[in-house]
Computed example of a mutant assay.
Amino acid sequence: MRGPLGAVIGRYPSSDGNAQMGGIIRHNRKCRDIVFLVIFIAFWVGMIVNSSFGFNQGDPLRLTYGLDYKGNVCGDKHANPGLRELELKYWLNPNQVYQSGLKDSQFKLADARSICLMDCPTPSEDSLNWVCDYPEGEIRLSMDDWIDRNYDYFEFLTPEMRNSSVNLQGPCYPVIFPSVNVYWSCQFLARPSNVSLTHWKQMGGMNIDADLIIDKSIHKSTDSRSSVLKRYMSDIGKSWPILIVCGGILPLFLAVIWLLMIRHFVAAMPWVTVVLFNILIVSVTMFYYLKAGWIGNDAITPIIGDHDPYVHIFGKGSSIICALLLF
């Protein structure tokens, strides 16, 4: 039989021809991949610069809330004007929303005029409601007064401004369609108020398209891949304490308890496992029946806050993450 293999390193001469002594490589060692080292250093410098820029200039609110036509993030108290508690994005001109939903249109919903509100406007039952732009210029109102007046200062407009508003050019726009809060955006419902439309036509207002496209245009935007991804990232950012506790600390604690039970109650553990597994399956089934609306009236919905129970809107959202976090 062959004897044991000795150390291989050092038995052969190095690439530069120097002999080895005592099984140890004696030639001079040095960094031979200078190009990669330079690239690696440049990578870390870029990462530091990029991270610094993100921490200083980034705004996590953009993952949740929309932007108004000025580029302000809804809910940003440092915006101009201040948008504290004005977290809902609302599109002022319904015809622009309609136009953005047409197949051959080059107009995008992101280009439609939008502002930030505290709640989604609804049509009046006996008159015509208005939503006006932020009070600026000739409009001598504070933001608080504008909010208290339900965003309506149409009565203060000059004749020229009123004529411009009747032609859907602002600063005030009619509330013809009801809307609900869907992922912090006011989703139009394609069922215009007959009373509001009658008052609008009596004022000589221009024609407003009331097709289902106005509903689908916003729905398509909130269900886009980028919007869904932003909501996922926002949910993770908001739920990190739950992820740490339920995904790290609690499983570790339960694992220790489980090992102790196996150590001291080994005979009963098969039945304990079967019972707990069945309880878990039944609980998950009941939970999804509740969220589907088969039990009670607690179906998963993208609509945020109170709304008409006959209004049903479906969307790709973060309810899956919420359900998974519970288990």
Rank of each mutant, 00 (worst) to 15 (best):
E87M: 03
E125K: 06
W184I: 00
K30I: 06
W200Q: 02
K230P: 01
I9K: 10
P174Q: 12
E125W: 00
V275H: 08
S185D: 01
G6V: 05
L252D: 10
P171M: 04
F327Y: 11
V45D: 06
L86A: 14
G58H: 04
R62E: 13
F314E: 14
Y90M: 13
G6W: 01
L86P: 03
Y69W: 08
L229K: 09
P60R: 05
P302A: 05
F43W: 15
G248W: 05
V245Q: 13
T222N: 11
D308N: 14
F314W: 08
L324Y: 06
I9P: 02
T273P: 02
G46H: 03
R162M: 00
W184G: 00
L260Y: 09
N278V: 08
V45F: 13
E138T: 10
G66T: 06
L86T: 09
T122V: 12
K103F: 15
K316V: 15
N50E: 07
N93W: 05
S164W: 05
Q106W: 04
R11Q: 10
Y232R: 15
S217V: 04
V8A: 14
Y134R: 07
L37H: 10
L141F: 14
F43T: 15
P178A: 09
K201N: 13
R11F: 02
A7Q: 08
A7V: 10
N194P: 00
P174D: 06
D16H: 03
M143P: 00
P13C: 05
S234Y: 09
I279D: 00
I208W: 07
K230F: 01
